[in-house]
């Protein structure tokens, strides 16, 4: 994840408390989604950014995952995201995200 974005995630978690934060991702594939999830759950796996060694355990979901999708206004999701369900491998992404959440999510 971009180093500046990592910095903002860290600052916002400190400001609002990690228990109040949800991270939503729009990654193009399962691996990218997994890398970003790992970063905000367990720490930066590339050892480059401010989240290196910081295990925030934040709630994190991909925007196409059922858990969060059911909470969106249907019409907004339809217009903004739905087409991408035909493009992305949503099952793959979910599986990857879930494996990281099972291991590291604290909330």
């Amino acid at each position: 994840m971009d180093l500046e974005n990592q910095k903002r995630v860290l600052e916002l978690s400190e400001e609002h408390g990690p228990e109040n934060i949800v991270v939503l991702l729009g990654a193009a594939d399962a691996e990218g989604a997994g890398l970003a999830a790992e970063t905000v759950l367990a720490g930066d796996p590339t050892y480059a950014g401010p989240l290196t060694g910081v295990s925030l355990g934040l709630r994190v979901y991909h925007v196409c995952e059922e858990e969060v999708k059911q909470e969106f206004d249907e019409a907004v999701y339809e217009e903004q995201v739905s087409m991408m369900e035909m493009v992305l491998d949503v099952d793959d992404i979910h599986e990857e995200m879930q494996s990281f959440r099972d291991e590291y999510m604290k909330f």
Binding site: E79, Q80, V81, S82, M83, M84, V87
Partner: peptide
């Protein structure tokens, strides 16, 4: 146009 992939394409 906005940033929705559908609108962009």
């Amino acid at each position: 146009t906005g940033s929705a992939p559908q609108a962009v394409i």
